[in-house]
């Protein structure tokens, strides 16, 4: 029983962080389930996928209401990330995973430092298009256009490939691509990424479901905790200052970069 309470409480934390910065929070759940609950890695991954789906769905329902999620942009970018994920499965046969993890680690470190050192996003208003968006940040109407779409699509293709090889949902790559390359405000980038990570997780979760690798009983406190966490996280994103969100994301990316660089160097994390 005490174990279920731990899972519930940690899920609230992971759901809050994941939904606030648009990264899903699956990696945190895997760490918790393997290191604290001592679940076998496959069962931990399955539950983390379930948690990403719940977090993505609930958070997105709130962000859509605030018009922060850009559905059209998400669908267009998903065409690139999905294609990349399929390509990644083939590339994984040619290039060693450690090299990809090393590249990912260095890229995340670079993105993390950029976010930490340049706390103000430089959104550029270009020609409005179907992909443009607007939302209210407090009482201010924020209008934005999407810059460098081709570069963003290309980067998303790579993001899909990397997440296909390394086995992550890709939120930690998608948010920096949208914010740093496509110049989308951090709130819209995080909310749109939140929308996207659910589909990636769903594709993998179906496989775990068919292979009967989901601990259904542990799924209940996980999902309940994630739902509450996602409600807290969305509140912080909707009402928080973009400056703090970028700093939190920058910090998380820097931490992830260390994990991936260590993995690339052969230091076993999980």
């Amino acid at each position: 029983m005490i174990q279920l309470i731990y899972i519930f409480l940690f899920s609230i934390l992971a759901g809050s962080i994941g939904s606030m910065v648009g990264i899903g929070g699956g990696f945190l759940m895997i760490l918790f389930f393997t290191l604290v609950i001592k679940l076998p890695i496959r069962y931990a991954v399955a539950l983390s996928l379930i948690s990403i789906i719940a977090s993505s769905s609930i958070a997105t329902s709130f962000y859509l209401h605030e018009k922060m999620t850009n559905i059209r942009l998400a669908i267009v970018l998903e065409t690139a990330t999905c294609t990349g994920a399929i390509l990644g499965a083939f590339i994984a046969l040619i290039i060693p995973t450690s090299i990809i993890e090393g590249i990912l680690g260095i890229t995340l470190l670079y993105a993390g430092i950029l976010l930490l050192l340049n706390p103000i996003s430089h959104e550029v208003i270009t020609k409005p298009s179907k992909l443009s968006g607007e939302y209210y940040d407090g009482n201010n109407l924020v209008k934005y256009s999407v810059s460098r779409i081709k570069l963003g699509l290309f980067a998303s293709l790579f993001a899909g490939m990397i997440s296909g090889i390394v086995g992550i949902g890709g939120g930690i790559i998608k948010v920096p691509i949208m914010n740093l390359i496509m110049k989308i405000p951090i709130k819209a980038a995080a909310a749109t990424s939140n929308f996207m990570v659910g589909l990636t997780a769903s594709a993998s979760a179906i496989v775990y479901f068919i292979k009967e690798m989901i601990d259904f009983q542990l799924a209940i406190p996980t999902v309940l905790g994630i739902i509450i966490g996602a409600m807290i996280g969305t509140h912080f994103l909707i009402h928080g200052k973009p400056l703090y969100l970028r700093r939190i994301l920058g910090l998380i990316l820097s931490l992830f970069s260390i994990i991936f660089i260590l993995k690339a160097l052969g230091v076993v994390i999980l």
Partner: peptide, 14 residues
């Protein structure tokens, strides 16, 4: 497991 499956296919439904 029916509830879990329904949750898993949520992103597909959207």
């Amino acid at each position: 497991w029916i509830g879990t499956l329904l949750l898993i296919i949520t992103p597909l439904l959207r």
